[in-house]
Each structure stands twice: as structure tokens, then as C-alpha cells.
Design a protein around this nucleic acid. Sequence first.
DNA 1: CCGCATCCCGTCCGATACTG
DNA 2: CAGTATCGGACGGGATGCGG
Lengths: 129, 129
Amino acid sequence: MIPTDTHDTGTCQRISELLSRIGDKWTLLIVRALGQGPKRFSALKRELGSISQKMLTRTLRNLERDGFVDRKVTPVTPPQVEYALTPLGMDLFRPIAALAEWTFAHADAIDAARHAYDARHPDPDHRAA
Amino acid sequence: MIPTDTHDTGTCQRISELLSRIGDKWTLLIVRALGQGPKRFSALKRELGSISQKMLTRTLRNLERDGFVDRKVTPVTPPQVEYALTPLGMDLFRPIAALAEWTFAHADAIDAARHAYDARHPDPDHRAA
DNA sequence: CCGCATCCCGTCCGATACTG
DNA sequence: CAGTATCGGACGGGATGCGG
């Protein structure tokens, strides 16, 4: 039994909200990149490769709003903007790292479960051709 | 600095995938409910209150496919289906609980950051009227 | 260099209605 | 009781073009 009794429904939804935020397509990659040290906008974009400016800007804004990332604008020409993790942002990624290690450790168990399930359910429709 | 060097980009995306899955609207609530012991479909629906049958079914299916939940059908009339966490499912929610506690501990820091940000950015448009 | 605005598509999710 | 089918709105996210 999991000791869930310390977490009520409201707390649970709050966690879910956070998970949704950091579980999106780009957040983890961006934070990982910033974990190596402060980076400029273009450097991030280059490092992530396939991300669009729109999503990079939006994700950074969300991270900034939540207090995980700090945005420093140097008003020169051309403009120069540097992003860095805040202490809170670094702290967040301790439990995230734990989850990451769990995922890494159990990735093949999950894969196996999926394959077994798919084999048990020969339904060709809702699993892409 | 976060020790991210043990996690390459591929691993990072994998984690992101898992986070997206469990960070959806209902998964955590359902797992928390099942953490108290096996439950039947209707019992879950009653407990969660506002969830639709569609989402409950879909979420349970996903959890089952990933090997986190076991589905036991008792072919009587009326039909009877019971859901329970698998050992893998219970194990997963150790790191999740750690993250939950972090969230609980820092919830007001995040709120404060958001309010500060919103105050700094008096943009009435993209934040609901 | 950095970021915003627009268009557009796919997916998520809720509401409703129907079946074994 | 447990589940499926269908419709429709909301949102995420990519492509492109414009402006400090």
C-alpha cells in the first residue's frame, strides 16, 4: 500500500498540474540544457535543434513565470537574452532526476508490458498502422 | 549544477513521455484511489466524481497497457471488473510521492513566483479575463 | 538577435446516446 | 454494470512572416 494518506485530492491535482507542465514536449529538454549553465536564446535553439522559436519562447516564459528560470536581458544591439536556472529550478530537478532514474531502470519492463498488451489485444485500429 | 550527464537526450525524451502520460488530467487521481486497494469501475467513477466514463476507461486502459494496473474481469451478470495496482505500479509511485512532497513543500514559492511575474507583466490578454 | 502574430492541423477531453 | 460510438469544443504545437 502506498502512503497516499498524506496527500489529499487537492494536493494530488496540484501535483498533476505540475507534472503536466513539466511533462510537455520541451520543458525537460530545456531544463536539462540549462542545467549545464546559463545559455542564450539562440544557443538553446541551436542545441535543441527541432524546436520552433514559438515553442522555445513559450516554454521559457512558463518556466520563468513559475520561478524555475531567470531571464536576463542585456540591452545592447543586437539584443542579448540569457536564461539560467534559479535555485528553485535546480532544486526541482532533484525529485525529477529520481523519477528519471526510475524510468531508466524500468523502461524495458514498461516496453514489455506494452508489447504483451498489444499482443493480447489484436485491435489494429487505434494503434497507428 | 545538476548531474544531468548521466541522461542523454533520448533518455530525457523517454522521461518526458512518461511524465506526459502520468501528468494528464486523471491518472494521478486514479492511481491514488487504487493505492488504497483494488476497486471496481463504478466505485472508481463514484470516488472521482467528475470524470466521464470515457476518460475513466481510457485512462485505465493506458495504465493497464503500461503494466501499472491489473484488470480482472469476473464474467457474471451483471459484469464485474476490478482494477488494482500491479507491483510495478506501486513501485512507480515511490518517486512520484517524492515529487508530490516537493510540490507540496514548494507550492507557495511557485504561487509567489507566478504572482510576481503576473504583476511584472500587466498583459491582460493571455491570462483569462 | 529576440520575439510576436497568424494560420492551421492533430489530439485531448467532455457530453450524450447506445449495447451486452 | 462496464464499455463503445459519435460529435464538437478547446488546446498544443508546427510553419511562416513581421517588428523591435
